[in-house]
Design a protein around this nucleic acid. Structure first.
Lengths: 127, 127
DNA sequence: TTTACTGTATCGGTTAACTGGTACACTAGT
DNA sequence: ACTAGTGTACCAGTTAACCGATACAGTAAA
């Protein structure tokens, strides 16, 4: 499950690890309440420093995917249920900013994105 | 036009400069064939090193927004050749759909995204 | 309490990104 | 040619990200 990790990749090791866990959760390979490998165990398996695994886990915790319990382990969170309003708002802001940023990079302006957004959302909400 | 640039921002100076030019082109403030400020001129205006401006311009050139001509200057490229209107609309739709998809996967609903979107767009226009 | 696990905290070394300084090379007009 | 503008190329200092090593601290069961 955590086999393919590339030290030479431009994306940091901790980001690669965190991404693995995210897709595992999304795919259902990891369900709510289930414990993840300990930082040392996973570090040994991946030939990586424990601190690197910690950084990955903290990233996941910041996004609300997992919870780190001192002395017990790291456990998968109920994603949508445990998210607080503030966190969701913050994440929405981050996602939208990235959207606008990517759009600007490709020459797609805010107006076009706004039209597309309203078209998509309007279709879903009006139903 | 290139006034507001923040050295303390986590986003690099060259990225900020490139972003300014992108939005200027998207907004029509810069039209095809028009010349941009020279690297030294803009560097002096922004209190920045010429190499930083060069990096921004090279980024834009890599994306097809501008063309650097040795000894002559930097000029805005034909935008429509880069992305036609239809393509931009399609692109916008794809990006928005991906946004909604990612949001749903992370537990962020369309309403929250809509609020964040309007907030961001409103903030950018005032800028 | 002891033991064996768990996450936490902090320090260093390495690396790459970022930015500035400076010299080089091309172009157009004089 | 010369000059004054342009972009180009290269090197150095600073900063921050990244990652490893190691010691600290909480938890649970024997």
């Amino acid at each position: 499950m955590f086999e393919e990790i590339d030290p030479r990749s431009p994306t940091p090791l901790y980001a690669q690890i965190a991404a693995r866990v995210r897709v595992a959760i999304a795919a259902g390979d990891l369900s709510t309440g289930q414990s993840l490998p300990s930082v040392r165990t996973l570090a040994r398996d991946l030939r990586v420093n424990p601190a690197t695994v910690v950084q990955a886990y903290r990233d996941l915790a910041a996004d609300g995917f997992v919870e780190l319990r001192h002395g017990q382990g790291t456990f998968v969170q109920e994603v949508s249920a445990f998210l607080k309003d503030e966190e969701r708002a913050t994440r929405a802001q981050q996602m939208v900013r990235k959207l606008l940023e990517d759009g600007a990079r490709l020459g797609v302006g805010a107006e076009e994105l706004s039209r597309a957004f309203n078209a998509e959302v309007g279709a879903e909400i009006s139903e």
